[in-house]
Structure formats: C-alpha cells, structure tokens
C-alpha cells in the first residue's frame, strides 16, 4: 500500500486531483425483501392491487440512484452513464432479491448510488405490497463489488453457505433477469509496477472484458488506473495462475493474473 499523502521522501504532500484522470468506476449493491410466500406469489402473478410491482420498483431504483446527492449530505452529484436494477424472485427463501449496478467515468465512486438504488427499490417493493403484507423485512442491503479509482477493486468475500447455493440455483431456474454469478479474475501487481500504478490488486468480472484474453485484461486495467502507461514498458512479465506466460493467452473466470517487472532475487 502507498500513502497518497506522502511523497517519495515521506514528506506530507497535498494530492492535486485536477490532474487525476477520470477513471471507469462501477459498483454493484444488493439487498432483499422477505415476505410471506403468498405475497411473493401475488407479486409473481401480477395480481398486486397497485399493479406492476417490479417495473415500478425498477424505475424507482434508477431514479433514486440519479438523486443520491440530494439524499446523502456529502455525496457529489454524478453523471451516471449506466444504472440498472434487477430483481430475482426467490421462492425458497420467499424474498425478492434486488441488485443494482451503477457505472460512470469520473473522479469519485458510485457505491452510494448503487446502495441508494437498492434501498429505494426495496422501499418501493414494500410500498407496492404493504396492503397485503405489512410484516415484510428489508434485509442485507450491502455493497458487493466496486471497481475504479485509486483504491481499485473491492469484492465482498463470502463464505459459501446454503443460502448462497440456493441463490445460485434460483438464479438459474428463474425466468426473469437472472443475476449472473460470475467469478472474478483476480489481478496482482508487484514491485515497481505496483508502486507506479498505486494499486496492489484489482479484480474484474469476466463479463466486463472485451474478450477472455490476457490482452483484454490489460486493456481493462488501463481503463481503471491513473498511470496506464506503466503497463506499456517492454520488459513487463506476466503470470497466469502462478505460471509465467508470454504473448496473449486465454483467461478464465477465477484465474489469478499477475503483472510485474523483471525479477531480481538471489
């Protein structure tokens, strides 16, 4: 880790953000609202008194993301380039799972927007269904993944539980817009390259790459970091799953990709 407020000699130094390049920032937040099985059935069948519940909650979530700065005191107003809100009806745990994805090119993150979208979508689901079920519970509103900016990628680490495997099975079984359960590709940097990039680890969902290749991973990294030219040096070494590789190779979900300068041990 490097301290952004210290220069090479360890002296305090103010960070000038005007030179900071806009980076590609994304965040995924999720949450769920648990209800009576009968309520879920009414919702699935489109028989709720207030009409199309999911369509309304989706619009509510998207609108909320765009207005996050009005709700959260210290949030900047952002020009979001993409907001999506998806639902998954889980009949095993009789709940609606909500997933929000936000993206922008900018100097500040989009976690708050994604969390706000999930929260308001859940509140709207509550409002639309409360006539038949006042005991619904909004639960586990949380950030699952973020990328871009100096702190790079953050991914929620989850101990696999029965509930998770249910979620995966259900996502596959449901007809609606399913949550794609992708395993991220982990990316690591070492030594001088790590210092030049100012980041030690990144992770990317395979779906965010233009192709499942090492070159596409490199291009994606360049879109995320403040010093993309650091990846253009001729003698850059690369390893996939702890084996040195040369040229372009295929990269699969769950792979660990590492970039580093020539080695100097011994």
């Amino acid at each position: 880790m490097t301290l952004t407020h210290l220069n090479e000699r360890g002296e305090a130094s103010m960070v000038d953000v005007s030179d900071k390049q806009n980076s590609h920032r994304e965040a995924v937040a999720t949450g769920r609202i648990v209800m009576q099985p009968e309520t879920l059935k009414l919702l699935a069948d489109g028989d709720m008194p207030k009409g199309d519940v999911l369509a309304t909650a989706r619009i509510a979530g998207i609108q909320a993301a765009k207005r996050t700065h009005e709700l959260i005191p210290l949030c900047h107003a952002l020009m979001l380039s993409k907001v999506s809100v998806d639902f998954e009806l889980d009949t095993v745990e009789h709940c609606v799972r909500v997933r929000a994805f936000c993206r922008l090119e900018g100097r500040t993150g989009v976690e708050m927007e994604a969390l706000t979208a999930v929260s308001v979508a859940c509140l709207t689901l509550y409002d639309m269904c409360k006539a038949v079920d006042r005991g619904m519970e909004i639960m586990e509103v949380r950030l699952d993944h973020k990328s871009g900016g100096r702190s790079g990628v953050w991914q929620r680490q989850e101990a696999s539980s029965a509930a998770d495997s249910h979620a995966v099975l259900d996502a596959r079984a449901s007809d609606g817009p399913a949550v794609t359960e992708e395993t991220p590709i982990e990316i690591r940097f070492f030594a001088e390259l790590r210092e030049r990039l100012g980041v030690e680890k990144l992770s990317v969902l395979p779906g965010h790459l233009s192709s499942p290749t090492l070159m596409a991973v490199k291009e994606w990294i360049k879109s995320q970091v403040d010093a993309p030219q650091a990846l253009d040096q001729a003698r850059l070494l690369c390893a996939v799953n702890h084996d040195m590789v040369q040229g372009d190779v295929a990269v699969n979900p769950g792979d660990e990709v590492a970039f580093f300068p020539p080695v100097t041990g011994g």
């Binding site: 080695v263 100097t264 011994g266």
Partner: peptide, 22 residues
C-alpha cells in the same frame, strides 16, 4: 532462481530508494 523466481529487490541509499534493474 535469479531469472525466473518472482523476487524483487529495492535498494535503499542515503539519497533515496530505487528498484534494482535486471
């Protein structure tokens, strides 16, 4: 070992630190 094991040396001197070149 010197050319394929991923180790990196950073040398510190009185005038600063730098990463050792291959």
């Amino acid at each position: 070992l010197k050319t394929s094991a991923p180790f990196w040396k950073k040398e510190h001197t009185s005038s600063g630190a730098y990463w050792v070149s291959e």
